[in-house]
């Protein structure tokens, strides 16, 4: 009789355990996009500044160009062999597939937009999601007479010397009575 009671309790307990596990499994949702790289490493990457690439270096079969402008702009003109992935749609299912495929084939993603500024968000997001071989093309894109103009540009270049300008202006002002 005692043995029977024990078995009953045991079976109740095991059913409960199994139920809990089942509920846990059902309610567990794997997040679709997971950061693979923490903020600290991302910052290191950002500071390293080794992710810029110039226009003259992109002729490489290992590079895949991704145009992050919208489709309209892309249709108007784009760089050779570029794929269009509009920045806000970066995390869509089909686009994630594209990125995964690129990562599997060990190729490098080269991002570009109308200005390098536009690529910061996609670049940093991709990097944090674990797509580490990702680069930014330092190019400015504009149109002249419906023709695509591409121009290499410098990042974060200090263009003006404000102190000197202010001194100069004071000098000038004091010269003219």
């Amino acid at each position: 009789m005692k043995e029977l009671e024990k078995t009953q309790r045991l079976s109740i307990a095991s059913v409960l355990v199994i139920l809990v596990v089942l509920i846990g499994l059902i309610s567990y949702k794997k997040p679709k996009h997971i950061y693979d790289i923490n903020s600290k490493n991302t910052l290191e990457k950002v500071v390293s500044k080794d992710y810029f690439i110039g226009l003259d270096e992109i002729d490489n079969p290992n590079y895949i160009l991704i145009d992050i402008r919208n489709q309209n702009e892309f249709d108007k003109g784009s760089l050779k062999n570029a794929i269009n992935i509009y920045a806000p749609e970066l995390l869509n299912k089909s686009n994630s597939k594209v990125f995964k495929k690129i990562k599997k084939s060990n190729k490098t993603i080269i991002l570009y937009g109308a200005k390098p500024d536009e690529t910061i968000a996609p670049f940093m997001l991709l990097h944090q999601l674990g797509y580490e071989n990702c680069k930014i093309l330092t190019v400015e894109i504009s149109y002249f007479e419906n023709k695509l103009i591409t121009k290499n540009c410098l990042i974060e270049n200090s263009k003006f010397d404000i102190n000197a300008f202010i001194k100069e202006s004071v000098k000038k002002a004091s010269l003219k009575p």
């Binding site: 997040p31 679709k32 996009h33 997971i34 950061y35 693979d36 790289i37 923490n38 903020s39 920045a87 806000p88 970066l90 995390l91 910061i120 968000a121 996609p122 940093m124 997001l125 944090q128 999601l129």
Partner: peptide
């Protein structure tokens, strides 16, 4: 543990 911070989707929309 690496997955600190806000959801990547939110980050994208904020960043853009």
């Amino acid at each position: 543990e690496k997955h600190e911070g806000i959801n990547p989707k939110d980050l994208l929309s904020n960043a853009i």
